[in-house]
Amino acid sequence: MLAFIRGRLLSGLLTIFGVVVLVFFLARLTGSPIDLFFPEGATQAQLESFSRAHGLDRPLLEQFWVFLSNAARGDFGMSIWQQRPALQAALSEMPATLMLTFLAMTVSVIIAVVLGTIAAAFRFRLVDRIITILTLATGSIPHFWFALVSILVFAIILRLVPTSGAGNWQSWILPVATVSLGPIGILTQVTRGAMIEVLSSGFVRNARARGFGSTRILYRHALRNAALPIIAVAGDIAAGMVNGAIIVSVVFAFPGIGKAIIGAVLARDFPVLQACIVVVGIAVVLLNLIIDLIYVVVDPRVRLS
């Protein structure tokens, strides 16, 4: 068990290192922050002065070496735009991101499991058709569309929730709903498929033959067996949500490391970009580890390898 965890963490570190190297050089292929930093009228001398102040005038490999040796000590440098360490800029986005991911995944897994199970239980009937069509459709609704319309309806017309921001608990409702849309669609389909598979397998028929009620069969036996694919897909979606959920961040002015990454890319704030990548990388590695451990809890037959 411990060896497994150690192995996963090691390979995770390797991945993060690879990403950081790639991002470091890719980012520098997209031009320099200098031009963006100054108003149009800046002179060449002023731009060079700025460039020196941020060490951007040094050879690329030297910059890389400086970055690596500092990063090894946990120092990712100062943000070019914000007056704070890059690492702090990245970390400050994480609590909200993780909370949003957690809430959205909880909501969508619950809804999807309920809907998917109902659809499987009533397969081929009208209920099943309606659920499938609805969830497939919600999965293809553009996020910003849903976000803007829901602000218009629920915040501006009905005044039930605030338009934006991350303040009280009400302000979480629309962002969570928006990011849950897609996952609900996919997870419902996954649940339905897995449940149908399990329900038609031998041991459920056995259970039925032994006289267990159908509700009990659905929830005690079938769901437990259908859990693996659901967890697998949900885990993948959650990992994507950690560095995604950008539209929600932009429209609702919600904190999020996804937005921070895009912002850093567009502003060429290389230190913040690199710090964000490392932070996201660590979060995703840990998340994947947790998912693997959940596997074991749900289904002891899964060996750790």
């Binding site: 292929l29 895009i262 970009l273 996201v280």
Partner: peptide, 22 residues
């Protein structure tokens, strides 16, 4: 798998900008 993980973590917007500059 590591390569896949790396690809997965590199922001697509960065990749897009790199392609734009080329």
């Amino acid at each position: 798998l590591r390569i896949a993980d790396i690809l997965h973590t590199v922001p697509s917007m960065l990749l897009a900008l790199v392609v734009l500059f080329i």
